[in-house]
Design a protein around this nucleic acid. Sequence first.
DNA 1: CATGAATGAGGGTTCATTCAT
DNA 2: GATGAATGAACCCTCATTCAT
Lengths: 194, 194, 194, 194
Amino acid sequence: MNLRKQKVAKKRKEMFRSAAKVVTNKGYDRATMEDIAAELLMTKGALYYYFDNKEDLIFQCHDLILSEALNEIEEIASMDLSPELKLEKAIKTHIDYAINEKEMFNMILVPEHTFVDDHLKLILEKRKRYTSVFDRIIEEGINKEDFKTSDSKMIRMIILGAMNWIQTWYSPRGGRSAEEIAETYSDLLLKLLS
Amino acid sequence: MNLRKQKVAKKRKEMFRSAAKVVTNKGYDRATMEDIAAELLMTKGALYYYFDNKEDLIFQCHDLILSEALNEIEEIASMDLSPELKLEKAIKTHIDYAINEKEMFNMILVPEHTFVDDHLKLILEKRKRYTSVFDRIIEEGINKEDFKTSDSKMIRMIILGAMNWIQTWYSPRGGRSAEEIAETYSDLLLKLLS
Amino acid sequence: MNLRKQKVAKKRKEMFRSAAKVVTNKGYDRATMEDIAAELLMTKGALYYYFDNKEDLIFQCHDLILSEALNEIEEIASMDLSPELKLEKAIKTHIDYAINEKEMFNMILVPEHTFVDDHLKLILEKRKRYTSVFDRIIEEGINKEDFKTSDSKMIRMIILGAMNWIQTWYSPRGGRSAEEIAETYSDLLLKLLS
Amino acid sequence: MNLRKQKVAKKRKEMFRSAAKVVTNKGYDRATMEDIAAELLMTKGALYYYFDNKEDLIFQCHDLILSEALNEIEEIASMDLSPELKLEKAIKTHIDYAINEKEMFNMILVPEHTFVDDHLKLILEKRKRYTSVFDRIIEEGINKEDFKTSDSKMIRMIILGAMNWIQTWYSPRGGRSAEEIAETYSDLLLKLLS
DNA sequence: CATGAATGAGGGTTCATTCAT
DNA sequence: GATGAATGAACCCTCATTCAT
């Protein structure tokens, strides 16, 4: 049934969100399957119908958000825009995730403390693909002489570091909206390339 | 005995280092007291001779490195230098910690996942003092019209975020020395203020 | 399910009995959760499905037997009987518990060695209610001039002390049945009031 | 050295008293060697110079008080007095211990929760000797037809139970002095034999 | 599909005991 | 004689996981 599959897919997304919420609040190890189930008004046992085990649940969760973000960022990279505009768009998209998907985003920041072996490897590869998109955009700008820098990796790491830090201090009740922050950051960070 | 006290103090530092190492590698929750003890060629029980419990051990560890860094950074802020030079020095010092005290540094990045209640409060207060030193230097530069920016907090957060991210990618076997990185970062980050 | 609840209630009673047995034999501190679980042919972990922790298990156990005995004794006090007959009945009931619920009874004798704070307070309050029933009966007898004594509290404490000591020496293989003992005790103890 | 031995003996008595104090307050299992040492302003290790181990310490403590009480009670039994006066004296002596050596006394009430095997056997034998002194006095009274009862054991157990219960409620800040209590108890308990 | 119940492995912590100094 | 330090066994408790119903 297509309808059924859609329903299941929707349910899984709900589960991801709840899982992310709990994991972000408590950390992976302190978040129990019971906590996650309770957030979903389910019993612990029911989760095992949908997922093999805790790591599997969180891994899929992790993978989903990463894949989504990767898609968006790759789409931006392939647009017919100037490197500067691409980078601006990429920065704003990243910050949008950092703020508006705070829970998911927060959860994936340090995968080394959650996963080992294969899962970790898969996650790290996808992250590498993600960061390499930024590298490509920056190098494109360097080639076109839009950007002036001798060290694209360093710049990329500054940019990502600065953005990933946002979720440690951002609060919706703070004085700045997500858009303002994205605007300010992209303005400032692009300065690094001029 | 003063000699005895010195010995104990030295031993405690060793313990801090080992604890930080294990916690950084595995995360607070996965690092067992046994792991930490093994790293020190001790038994688990011996740790409890020196510390009340796991949280106490890690908290003291946490507090030590934070206090040290705070002292250094405050000393820089009180020097008789131009804001630009102060900021440069502060950035280089911070990066020096991030790289050369990687284990300690890494451990303290997200205290929310380790501590709760009083310990967390104490840590967060000290962190606030740390970040406010950066704010002061930046504002000093703005007042002297050495720096051009309308939003010192934002700049500070970009700077700290960029620096704190270093430990996620730095490796001593990478192509760049700690000094090079510090140099590059301070050059680039100061651009944000020009 | 009402049926399920009944089952659970029954199981809990079983657990109380086993817990009391082990605690009486070994004392609270030496009785391990594993001991109690083994007595029930369960694993340790299963106990934690029903009770929050060891103290909780023993407290509930404690509270149950105390409440039951209190109910019986209060019922006797409210009967339409002479104080003498009431006291006789109360004594016999108490001794019946002391002997036939030896394990439960024994466990609750010195709550100070088991509980602290709130739990202890609750237990002590209920015990006070229990002893005050005896006081009421005795005072009723004094008022009706059935009993001759100037110090009802002292009498009550002698009576309770004498009865509570039974479980230190009673053995089902001894020469006296529970009924004989109860008979003898009530005869003798009532002498104190004549 | 006789002087030295005396000193040591005195020290040991001090230790017994401290140990009894701690054990009475916390119970045998909750009283740690450290607690006892702290009470004596010693370190834990030093206790092991005087005693083989915890059980040994408490056993000796136990044995001392029991032997003392036994001596006193046996002396009374061998006096040239009427059984009635002997029993009165014995009761008063026992109550004096119960109240004025509350800590020691309390500790020895339920040896089954402290000792096992040989130590327990020794204690129980000495207790048997103690109770048999009461039996002897009562039987003497029966033979001389001073006392009227058919069941001396039962009487003895009532008497001892009543007296041993005193320490659960006695407080120096209560309204009755030790002497008053002893007086009242001996009056009342002797009634059981008339 | 979902639940209640149970398991078992593992971690934090305590503490009697030992021992070099 | 005494101390600081260390050990190791045992205990309470948690929780991912399983499974009968």
